[in-house]
Design a protein around this nucleic acid. Structure first.
Length: 424
RNA sequence: GGAGGGGUGGCAGAGUGGUCGAAUGCACCGGCUUGCUAAGCCGGCGUACUCUUCACGGGGUACCCCGGGUUCGAAUCCCGGCCCCUCCGCCA
């Protein structure tokens, strides 16, 4: 969230941001609440100060003076109560609005509100050319009997799947390949809880918006994570970190769950958009320093690019426009990987920098080396690899005329074979 | 699921109705000292909000897991919740 003082002092900048994002928040109401709250809090504080003063005198007084002080103090106490009630009401409304204000955008965020306004920054790799009629991943898997979505639908509904045989091994291979790569760069692997509480969801900005996307375990007020960013960014919530070990780099390894509400009818074919997937995610905590944030953002982007380059998958890097960027993010790069079956690029990675936005919500701070006030950390994250979506690209880019699929060279050591075998 | 114990400042750990925002130790910061070596000495050192000052600074309120309550006055008493630990049971 943004610092209330910042919003108070820069309402025009906040309004400009809202319009760049094409979103609305009742900022006037927010500012009015802010003013009213501070005003009533001050009155409450003053009254309370007076009351405390009296209460403090009580033990040293006697007789009438004593009972007078007690009575007066009680009276003041009574008058404070309604103020407290009012403050609570106002605060609740204030908090709701506060959480609703998205992060400020960096200057270089491309203008525009539609997906088509995103800007392609660069491409890498040559799209494969096939001298035969290509199959998409679903057809390939069908031919090799590596996937069962029909029965999955019966067992678990739409957008679910059973991977079979070598496809299971391929998933494990690509995850392990990615995890090894990121770990070798100083990222600490973490296997986090897949169910988190409300405050972790709020802190990372997945609530209240995005509530539609999360599976809720209502009985226990828990939520299935849509990404390990949620538990891992929350890892240091409420902590005062030592500056010595900033930046901290983590590699989350988890299953992810998404309801895909509102995506009905979209990407219904195959493994592209599913309710459950596996992901290795990079999460970074760093100093309260924009330059460092930007530098690390390039780092996590490069890590992901290296994963794809290792796999020899063509991709492009795009900058998300104001209307397409997440509410918590100040700037987001997406990486889209070439998927011949779609005859298009498909999003496989998303790298965001948040500056203070998440860490402020979560209360993640560090004390600067020479002493002084604690500062709020910055956070960033990016995908390393997500499966099965990455399998779509791997399968389709490495298919052969006979419907078989070559295992990418870097995965062979993890697979123990060079070609996917039929499952039966 | 049953029984018990506990949640206090960066950490450890006192405090069970008033002068406690909170002892002490460690860590940290500033200074002094120093040939006697992970040293000693002196001083400082919570956070948030808010008011005030040109500034240095000063004032106020809140916070001892969270939320209610009792009281002139709550870290301390009462109620509810969350979390942690130990033992027993059950189970992967």
């Amino acid at each position: 969230m943004l610092e209330p003082r910042f919003v108070r002092e820069n309402p025009d900048a906040v309004r400009a941001m809202l319009s760049r994002r094409g979103t609305k928040v009742d900022l006037d109401r927010f500012l009015a609440l802010d003013t009213e709250l501070r005003e009533i809090q001050r009155r409450r504080d003053d009254t309370r100060a007076e009351q405390k003063q009296l209460a403090k005198q009580v033990p040293s007084l006697e007789g009438d003076e004593r009972s007078a002080a007690m009575a007066k103090s009680k009276e003041l106490g009574q008058s404070i109560k309604p103020m407290g009630k009012r403050i609570q009401e106002l605060e609740a409304e204030f908090k709701t609005l506060h959480l609703a204000i998205p992060n400020m955008l960096d200057d270089e965020v491309p203008p525009g509100l539609a997906e088509s306004d995103n800007v392609e920054l660069r491409t890498w790799g040559d799209k494969p050319s096939f001298d035969f009629d290509i199959r998409d991943h679903l057809d390939l898997c069908e031919g090799l009997d590596l996937l069962d979505m029909k029965r999955a639908a019966r067992v678990a509904g739409s957008r679910t799947y059973f991977l079979r045989g070598d496809l299971v091994l391929l998933e494990l291979a690509v995850l392990r390949y990615a995890l090894d790569l990121i770990a070798s760069r100083g990222y600490l692997p973490l296997a986090p809880p897949f169910i988190v509480n409300r405050s972790a969801m709020e802190g990372t900005g997945y609530l209240p918006f995005g509530a539609d996307q999360a599976y809720e375990c209502a009985r226990d007020d828990g939520f299935l994570i849509g990404t390990s960013e949620v538990p891992i960014t929350s890892l240091h919530g409420g902590e005062l970190l030592s500056e010595d070990d900033l930046p901290r780099r983590y590699a989350g390894y988890s299953a992810c769950f998404r309801r895909e509400a509102g995506a009905a009818g979209k990407d219904t074919r195959g493994l592209y958009r599913v309710h459950q997937f596996m992901k290795v995610e990079q999460v970074v905590f760093c100093h309260n320093d924009e330059r460092e944030s930007r530098q690390l953002h390039e780092e996590i982007l490069a890590n992901a690019e290296d994963v794809l380059q290792g796999l020899r998958l063509p991709y492009r890097v795009i900058a998300l426009c104001g209307g397409d960027i997440g509410r918590s993010s100040a700037f987001t790069y997406d990486i889209e990987t070439w998927m011949p079956g779609r005859d298009n690029y498909g999003e496989t990675h998303s790298a965001s920098r948040y500056y203070e936005y998440q860490a402020r919500r979560l209360g993640i701070r560090y004390r600067p080396k020479g002493g002084g006030k604690p500062l709020i950390c910055h956070t960033l994250n990016n995908t390393v690899v997500a499966s099965p979506r990455i399998l779509v690209a791997i399968l389709e880019n490495n298919q052969r005329a006979d419907g078989s699929v070559q295992v990418p060279e870097v995965l062979v050591p993890f697979m123990g074979k060079e070609v996917l075998a039929r499952a039966k």
